[in-house]
Nucleic acid binder design. Structure first.
Lengths: 216, 216
DNA sequence: TAGGAACGAGACAGGTCTGTCCAGCCATGC
DNA sequence: GCATGGCTGGACAGACCTGTCTCGTTCCTA
């Protein structure tokens, strides 16, 4: 299954950008590694930034597909789905070439590019929305729980970069499941589970989930 | 109180590096903004990387001092201290010049530099250790709770970069207090702490007004 | 078989980067 | 008076960057 030239460029450039940084990788190195001519590269992309955006979008599609496959391959309940999502994360964090969140790194290096910010935001919103879809019908205040799960997810990635020996993925998973059980237990209507905890007060209203957004 | 030349360089370079990225800022721009000669810069630093490391260490000292001041200014219990720590975070995230974790960004751009990785790790371990010191004697399994709190802290910073409208700081604080009350409630031995009305912690300190900036 | 599109190889321009070096200025101390 | 040492301003070298362009080849299709 031969890749098209464009896909080949995206694959090579994406790996280089991720492993060494966007600004640290020149187009000369991309064409050398991809074994193509410079004119070919500039025939497929208008400039370097367009390559970066294409790499982020390809990565996003790959990660989203992997997420959906891992979480929805089997029909399971919310805790199992959350566990599967964090197991995927744990696998990513322990990959030998893991270096952090590619989207966050791209924004750090080119935060002025609207296209790059938009690609990053799109992926992060996908993750958030997936968590929301998983817990929505099983807890009270799913918006708050969703944001907290997303926080754990992001925190594990960031921590794995600098303190990888802290097992951030494992802690995030454990915490996510604890939170879910908490929010499910204090669920008002269904009342299927009732471990009777007074902490309900904390988990109630406060900051009205912004949710509006859509900057750009 | 006039700054020494070296401190002046660090201040100017640190702001430039943080706002635009390390590789995106050349030494020519540093000496122009700092209004010094190039020879002066290279008399104080052996090279650009040494400037970067000095900037990170200065930032680390500043942030650590601010953390300790905010959390230990008043004598309070663990929930109030956690609340204060996350209020400091909330203030930082909403600062107009906030762009993410400077240490993580530096590692993303220069992950091959041992000195930069070390500076980043030092700061992140400080945060972790502070959380540990706060909760150590008040919960069972303080190590796990500590890592989870650190995860929320990191996650809020990362999320604030890409989805700032999600109020990540507020969600992190709320979740941190919920976790603490959980871990305190299930504490086996002492059982001194009763999570009866934990909302005190939420309603206490003032958000923001920390004046984090220092944009210059 | 002929034409054209896609490609490889590489020169090239114009700019930027880091780091070195030189000449001159000025304050301080002897 | 005079040396010293930190500073400024700027030239400079050598490398690297992005993006354009030319030229020859290959491959597909009509």
């Amino acid at each position: 299954m031969p890749l098209s030239v464009r896909e080949h460029i995206i694959e090579v450039a994406g790996a280089l950008f991720y492993s060494r940084g966007i600004r640290a990788v020149g187009v000369d190195e991309i064409i050398r590694q991809a074994d193509i001519a410079k004119a070919t590269l500039y025939r497929h992309f208008r400039g370097k930034e367009e390559i970066v955006v294409a790499c982020l979008e390809a990565r996003r599609a790959r990660l989203e597909a992997r997420f959906l496959d891992g979480v929805y391959r089997h029909v399971l309940g919310p805790p199992e789905r959350l566990g599967a999502a964090f197991d995927l994360l744990i696998g990513s964090l322990s990959a030998p070439d893991f270096r952090g969140c590619a989207f966050l790194m791209a924004v750090a290096e080119h935060g002025d590019s609207a296209a790059i910010r938009s690609a990053a935001r799109g992926y992060k919103e996908f993750i958030r929305n997936q968590f929301f879809a998983i817990v929505r019908d099983h807890v009270h205040d799913p918006e708050t729980l969703t944001e907290q799960l997303a926080l754990l997810y992001e925190g594990a990635i960031a921590t794995a970069v600098i303190r990888p020996d802290a097992s951030p993925g494992d802690h995030a998973k454990r915490c996510a499941l604890l939170l879910f059980s908490q929010y499910a237990a204090t669920r008002p209507e269904g009342a299927t589970v009732a471990p009777a905890e007074p902490n309900v007060a904390i988990a109630t209203p406060v900051t009205g989930s912004r949710r509006s957004g859509r900057a750009r």
